[in-house]
Design a protein around this nucleic acid. Structure first.
Lengths: 134, 134
DNA sequence: CTGGGTGCAAAGTATTTGCATGAAC
DNA sequence: GTTCATGCAAATACTTTGCACCCAG
């Protein structure tokens, strides 16, 4: 499990109860929007205000501790920043899955063809997941 | 040039002045957010209300005549739906470019590995464009 | 003890909706 | 002539901000 106290310290952010709970819940819930996150946290930390949640989400994105996933027709989701990966979004059940497929061949093709230096990527595939195919 | 009257008719939408101007401007401006679009249209059609713009954008997305591009740290952009393609977003100048690179090899790799049936994709690469590299 | 973080309430933005009027077909 | 679309204003939803108090370091 990730040591969020340490991570926050490294980025010069105080390890407040609020931030630790936000990060823990994000780690558990994987891909969640702001309201889902809020509802989940309120059980653990009933005093949390939405203002604080918004402020922290923005701060944590800024420091690259978490990152946003923008899916069409959905509210923005958040996740803990880990290895770069692809997202598979099921149109039937709505679930979002991580996929570790290596996209560097594609990146190289594009870089060379377009003279564009790629630094990061956001790749989403929409379709039907394993369970919903059955 | 695309015949938007025809396109609207095929989707059973009335070809109103508002819709035609919205589509024409989108076609010219390529990747634009709602406020940029509104400001551009107001010159051509000063009576357009933002409510109508929002309603039409939603309607046109629903009918797949236009589509949204969700870029991190940017407002949602809109474009006329054409061939599937990738977006390259320059972190320096902010420009958004289309790239026609074929991603089907990647799609096949993922489909087979994950047992996920891909129907559409949203692929964004962030980095530095040709001009800003100089 | 000090500075950054929090909660609350209020302000600021963004987006949607109800309804009377108007335009497309 | 009908039906659907529009403009306006109001409602709703979303996000940020100011400020007094609080807690992590």
């Amino acid at each position: 499990m990730l040591d969020f106290k340490e991570i926050l310290k490294n980025k010069e952010l105080k390890a407040t109860q609020q931030r630790l709970v936000i990060l823990n819940q994000l780690d558990i819930l994987k891909h969640i929007d702001i309201d889902g996150l809020y509802e989940n946290i309120i059980d653990k930390l009933p005093t949390l205000s939405k203002a604080t949640l918004y402020r922290n989400i923005n701060e944590l994105i800024e420091k690259n501790i978490i990152n946003e996933i923008k899916v069409n027709n959905k509210k923005t989701l958040y996740e803990i920043t880990k290895e770069p990966h692809i997202h598979l979004v099921c149109k039937v059940c709505g679930s979002v899955m991580d996929n570790m497929c290596d996209i560097s061949p594609l990146e190289e093709k594009i870089s060379s063809k377009s003279d564009f230096k790629i630094e990061s990527s956001n790749v989403i595939f929409n379709g039907t997941c394993h369970n919903c195919l059955k």
